[in-house]
Design a binder for these strands. Structure first.
Lengths: 126, 126
DNA sequence: TATATTAATCGTCAATCGACGATGCAAGGA
DNA sequence: TCCTTGCATCGTCGATTGACGATTAATATA
């Protein structure tokens, strides 16, 4: 048995990886940091604090989370630290999202379930 | 001024959208639900509960979050509910991740900052 | 009408998150 | 040596999350 985590073709390890990456992007301030880093040719030090408009300690904490996920890398250039994106880090997330997006082509959201006669009384669930 | 939320080329509204989508994917159980939905031609009712291995109420809560994000749609087929992915929903997230991934081609993670002489004493920040 | 099936909702609890100000720390310059 | 600069870390607070069992709601079926 190659991988004991495998279930129905997907493994829980990968799910945890993807979730961790998504979590890193799951806050508006962090998304804005990413976008900011994306808008620059190189990377920036504490300008991020000005850009985001939160306290320095708060931004530092967001950067810590981003670094922990691997999405952002910091290079020390005393007294500054130089932040930049590591695009390769979000590969697992990118792959899954790519799969979902690809499904969009073949499969309109309406087509459904294994009980074909189900279409009779269709309501939207909320 | 076309959009008061614009800051340095990105708007906070979009950041919130992206963050909300990422948040929906920011839990291993929800990622596994997505992968499970992806592994099926159509969609499934309460089989998700068996697949995930958490209590029914917990899975229901995760499904609520996924529906709220638009990523998953539920169609009522009494007494079941038929869940399926709506690939279009994660467009904003997909777009941003696409941008980041594209950057990977031109820009290796090492190249950095606007102070070119910085490369002298390079350490890794943790 | 009574019962079984399936999913949503409620109430509760511990754990985690996000924000802040204050403080600490390492290098560079006066 | 004493400041200054730039970032990390600490401690604290309220808010949110994630898990569960119990309950409720809506149908189908006996």
């Amino acid at each position: 048995m190659p991988d004991p985590d495998m279930t129905h073709g997907f493994d829980t390890r990968n799910a945890a990886q993807v979730a961790a990456l998504a979590k890193a992007m799951a806050h508006p301030a962090r998304v804005r940091i990413i976008e900011f880093l994306l808008s620059r040719p190189g990377c920036i030090g504490g300008d991020i604090v000005d850009e985001i408009g939160l306290a320095q300690s708060t931004v530092s904490e967001h950067l810590r989370i981003l670094k922990e996920s691997g999405l952002v890398v910091g290079t020390i250039e005393r007294p500054r630290i130089c932040y930049s994106l590591d695009p390769g880090a979000l590969e697992p997330l990118h792959a899954l999202i790519g799969l979902i997006a690809a499904r969009g082509a073949q499969n309109d959201a309406a087509s459904c379930c294994y009980t074909p006669q189900a279409y009779a009384g269709k309501e939207s669930a909320e």
